[in-house]
């Protein structure tokens, strides 16, 4: 069963300078018990996607069409505020990027962990016991007294582990991890990823892991979705996409990964140009203005093409490059 199935999702924002098409025909699946990485540069619509799933779009944002099917039954775009609020936390939970700001500074860790269990119907002591159990699971030292402490008394890495404990405490079906390791240093990053991996296996949830760190995605995820300017440009298993990238953007992104540089260079490669102004989307391929393989066919609207079962790319070169890929 698929935990989350997003299909044809379109999100628009009304701005002072006119409507902005933030997400265009976004389609991807998060199968049960799998970790799906979402990768893309800043401004590619990752945050909008999270907010659309959580039902927390800003007031000027609107889902025009498309559906977000959760656990095969409820379409999240059609739920009432109240129904959506009931899903957030127990069924779909989130770990945010900034561990420093994600916890309330004036409430004790215990109160925050107890408050999010407000629907469980258990006694306060039972909720506290559950919180302690989770803190032990994420290896917070002295978990019992940690409940009475405040966020500023923990280090950044510990705060992020507390945030992870909070998000998995109710054993959700889907965990959305929004760049959970970006604010941490490299050693903590590895430890946090391993922790997430362990807990995911224990709880058996699906994870939507947002990151711009390709190495982390390759390490942690089974599937990957590459986003550019609010569109899914390529998706498939990590193996397929990373070893056989079909969209020019994916290829450029992989070339720019510092970990893939084989020679010493003074200047790391970048993709020249900028993400287009989403108030004026180009008619054809959204990546065309920056694409090195651009040709007249790119001026027409692009649809997603299947490369292989489970591997799709939104580029009209796909069929011929598939053929060339074999001979090269």
């Amino acid at each position: 069963m698929t935990t989350l199935s997003v299909s044809g999702l379109n999100v628009w924002f009304s701005t002072e300078d006119g409507p902005l098409h933030a997400l265009k025909d976004v389609t991807f699946d998060i199968p049960e018990r799998r970790i799906v990485g979402i990768v893309g540069e800043s401004g590619c619509g990752k945050s909008t996607l999270i907010n659309a799933i959580l039902g927390l779009l800003a007031d000027n944002g609107e889902i025009r069409n498309g559906e977000i099917l959760f656990e095969g039954q409820s379409d999240l775009t059609k739920l009432t505020r109240r129904e959506m609020q009931d899903l957030r936390g127990p069924r779909i939970s989130t770990v945010f990027q900034d561990p420093m700001g994600a916890l309330n500074p004036v409430l004790s860790v215990g109160e925050q962990m107890i408050n999010i269990q407000y629907r469980s119907g258990q006694s306060k002591a039972e909720k506290a016991a559950r919180a302690i159990e989770m803190l032990k699971l994420v290896r917070i030292p002295d978990a019992d007294s940690a409940l009475n402490r405040y966020p500023h008394q923990f280090s950044g890495g510990m705060k992020q582990r507390i945030a992870i404990a909070m998000s998995l405490m109710m054993e959700p079906a889907l965990l959305i991890a929004d760049e959970p390791t970006t604010a941490l240093d490299a050693t903590l990053e590895v430890a946090t990823i391993e922790l997430l991996q362990d807990l995911q296996e224990q709880i058996g949830c699906s994870v939507m892991f947002i990151s711009h760190h390709l190495g982390v995605i390759a390490e942690l995820c089974q599937d990957v979705v590459v986003m550019y300017a609010g569109e899914v440009v390529e998706r498939g298993t990590v193996r397929d996409v990373f070893h056989d990238p079909r969209h020019p953007y994916t290829r450029r992104l992989l070339e720019c990964d510092p970990a893939r540089q084989t020679e010493r260079t003074r200047v790391l490669p970048t993709i020249p140009g900028e993400i287009p102004d989403l108030r004026h989307r180009p008619e054809g391929c959204v990546f065309a203005p920056r694409c090195l393989e651009r040709h007249p066919g790119c001026d027409m609207a692009q649809s997603e093409r299947m490369v292989a079962p489970g591997h799709a790319a939104r580029c009209n070169l796909v069929d011929q490059s598939a053929a060339e890929g074999e001979s090269a």
Binding site: L54, L56, Q85, D86, L87, R88, G89, P90, S93, T94, F96, D98, G101, A102, L103, N104, P105, N115, I116, Y118, R119, A163, M166, S167
Partner: peptide
Amino acid sequence: EASHIRTARAFGLPENM
């Protein structure tokens, strides 16, 4: 606007709380 309020919303806490 703070991110911990976004966290609180992401955990589905009641708006009054």
